[in-house]
Write a protein that binds this DNA or RNA. Structure first.
Lengths: 197, 197
DNA sequence: CTCGCAACCTACCGACTATTCGGTAATCGT
DNA sequence: ACGATTACCGAATAGTCGGTAGGTTGCGAG
């Protein structure tokens, strides 16, 4: 059926990885198909042979990255449930993968623009992630968080801290201890209930 | 001396406001000088008569916006010091100014890219803002924060929460109560010290 | 009333953009 | 060996980009 078994899929993945790099360096708007093609030794038309448009290429890049991220998150939790410690581990892992963090920071912010091809992707992603994170928090800390917070409030705050720290870290890696600050936030959530006066 | 007193300055400001709008809609890379010019009824070269390059135009847009933001922050604190409540007020104010929030979210994320003209601006801005915010926190809450946090740790977390919430809010304004969640985070910082076991 | 300059404009440049069309060469199953 | 399919590439399309050069117009100062 297929000539060289999986040759097409290999080529496609090669292109996707190059595309992620270029998106990380220049953002989606600033990236050109030609520059991605150059990186894999193809012509611009060669890339478009595998992906019908720049939009679709972006969509597949995001899908692939999400799969891999899920691997990192789920693998350590093998056999056990995912905990806040697992999430802190992901932040630590990210601190060693600047390119990937940069691509997601830039692309997610870009996606808030009207008619951006990744808008729906990120909107849905945040929605489901928040619901899922709220359950992780509830499972570990219960319903009673400090200052009367609910897990449904803590979840969006958690992602806000992750994203916001990434931005500051990308601008000044030497000044920002991203994993340390994230753990500091976690300890804020884990603190025992407050004493009334 | 000047023909129409301040005519030039008025025109410049007109252009800056239009530029902020376009940057908010398309980001810096995606925005064209021509589209900004169209909005003020000039040709592309008319805009370049007032600002020598796109880079410089961006620089002045950011400077102007920062001034205005400072006004909002300082005005309510008239006579008194700036408090965490003032900051919460700024978040509330932002929740009514989608365009401005969007422009800053997109531009700050874009600025992490190599050779981006706004890189230094945002890097410096975050640096000074963190130092300043740490002092606001220390003045109001002292050195003893929940979970053993220092004001120097709380400050970057605070900006992370602000920025991260903005991103989620821009993607799903109906799902995210930005000011409410920010206040929830503040209450985490204000909670009394934990009871050991 | 004239000089000079500010405020624009048209015209243009070279480079780059995503995408389409029409090929060619290699390789596959048969 | 042969038709079909795949994997490309060259060239062209129809723009857009930021920026420059060189003008024209109209107002203000002298």
């Amino acid at each position: 059926m297929v000539r060289r078994r999986g040759a097409r899929e290999n080529r496609r993945e090669e292109i996707l990885l190059a595309a992620l790099d270029v998106f990380a360096e220049r953002g989606y708007t600033g990236a050109s198909i030609a520059s991605i093609a150059e990186r894999v030794g193809l012509s611009q038309q060669g890339v478009l042979h595998y992906f019908p448009s720049k939009d679709r290429l972006l969509a597949e890049v995001l899908r692939l990255r999400d799969e891999r991220n899920l691997d990192v998150l789920v693998l350590p939790g093998e056999g056990g449930a995912i905990t806040l410690e697992t999430v802190a581990g992901l932040v630590e892992y990210n601190a060693q993968r600047r390119g990937i963090v940069q691509s997601f920071t830039v692309l997610s912010a870009e996606s808030v623009l009207e008619d951006h091809p990744a808008r729906d992707f990120f909107k849905e992603r945040y929605g489901t992630s928040r619901a899922w994170m709220a359950e992780v928090i509830r499972a570990e800390l219960g319903d009673e968080l400090p200052a009367g917070l609910t897990p449904e409030q803590a979840a969006p705050l958690m992602f806000a801290v992750m994203d916001g720290l990434q931005l500051q870290w990308l601008l000044a890696p030497d000044d920002i201890d991203m994993p340390g600050l994230f753990r500091a936030f976690l300890s804020l959530l884990r603190a025992r209930r407050s004493v009334s006066e």
